[in-house]
Design a protein around this nucleic acid. Structure first.
Lengths: 208, 208
DNA sequence: CCCGTAAGTTACCGATCGATAACTTACGGG
DNA sequence: CCCGTAAGTTATCGATCGGTAACTTACGGG
């Protein structure tokens, strides 16, 4: 990317000079704050003022950078989609890795919840559908292969959404550890069945 | 000003006398309207004025009958839970019946969506968690039996939630019929695995 | 017939929301 | 040094929300 700045700031751009006005950094902070807010409380309940406060700015600047709330949501959901990472996993490790990612309490960004909690607002639901198709259904279906690839990719997404909703969003009385392990094992098995295909694609078995 | 009430009791108002003030009927209409509104647009996006308009009354009366919006939601979700019906199904027909119920376009009341779309608001999420435990996890787990009954019941609920969200709420480009059938078949198979138990309970087949 | 009470309506409140306009200030090229 | 422009702030708008108070009207027992 060609920087319009003056001289090349050097390879160690991490130690950026203490710019008090940095549009790119501000925009990135807003995007991260939006991912967190939309993941925790959903589209409707996350206000622009909350997001701006998390990012250390004002709601006006948020709108200047992203145009509207629903556009910010679409940008945040797109940025939160970890498809490029998940597609590097092998078919064999995919189910377990997906479960780990969904249950990782250290990461507050949860795309399945962003999708599920957005589907109440029509505009946000349309944005979520666009991003889901472009960044999940399409790539995952291509990665899966086979005739029912789209249906299986959609099943994985639906499974992850329901799993995340019940495991991380609803304040249910927590399961005892044994049942929790059973729950995770069931989820992994269901995803594995979808990854490997229903009847099993002929001659396509990934030699483990 | 919608209807002039005098002089037209309508064609055979069932068997009820033409009461112009019927608290029970009004309350029931409000509850049904709330089930529809919460199923379609979720807790946050469904306003008391919308619900009141669907029921043909005013938001004031809604609040007088149910106290608050979250209390109305809890009452509507409880009334919408079809557990008493589903538990009459045999273990064998349960998965297909559940899929039919979720995909029935004639019925606009969808408890899984009421739960999923409510989990953004903390109070509504708590209410949804209470009703889910009392009316789904508990009864279904008892009906399922076995050590992992609670975990399996939770899996069925999570599966239904994700399935309903992606099949009926998100405006995705619809799957072609063949893939749609595959999707439904996969859902039924996943539910069946949870109903029958993971390792399979020995000698516990219920005679339909 | 009469009136207490329940059923229902109208008007309104404070808070919050997304979004806009106008203003202020810092950065950097000339 | 100077000033144009981008970055950021303050003030505010109109709409909508859940919720409350006060008023009106119909039902039914005495």
């Amino acid at each position: 990317m060609t920087s319009s700045r003056s001289a090349d700031p050097g390879p160690a751009a991490d130690l950026a000079p203490p710019r008090r006005r940095d549009a790119r950094a501000t925009r990135r902070r807003i995007l991260e704050a939006a991912q967190h807010a939309f993941s925790e409380t959903g589209y409707s309940h996350a206000g622009l003022r909350d997001i701006a406060a998390r990012a250390g700015t004002s709601s006006t600047l948020v709108l200047r950078y992203f145009g509207s709330k629903v556009a910010l949501f679409e940008a945040a959901l797109t940025a939160a989609m970890p498809v490029q990472d998940t597609l590097r996993w092998s078919r064999d490790e995919y189910p377990e890795r997906l479960a780990e990612a969904l249950l990782d309490t250290a990461n507050p960004v949860r795309p399945p919840l962003m999708i599920a909690l957005a589907s109440g607002d029509p505009e946000a639901a349309a944005a979520a559908a666009r991003v889901t198709e472009a960044r999940i259904i399409g790539p995952v279906a291509a990665w899966l292969g086979g005739a029912d690839a789209r249906s299986r990719a959609l099943g994985i997404a639906a499974l992850a959404t329901g799993f995340a909703t019940f495991m991380r969003q609803l304040p249910l009385t927590p399961l005892p550890p044994a049942e929790q392990a059973h729950q995770t094992a069931w989820f992994i098995g269901a995803v594995r069945a979808l990854v490997e295909g229903d009847g099993g694609p002929p001659g396509d078995a990934p030699a483990g």
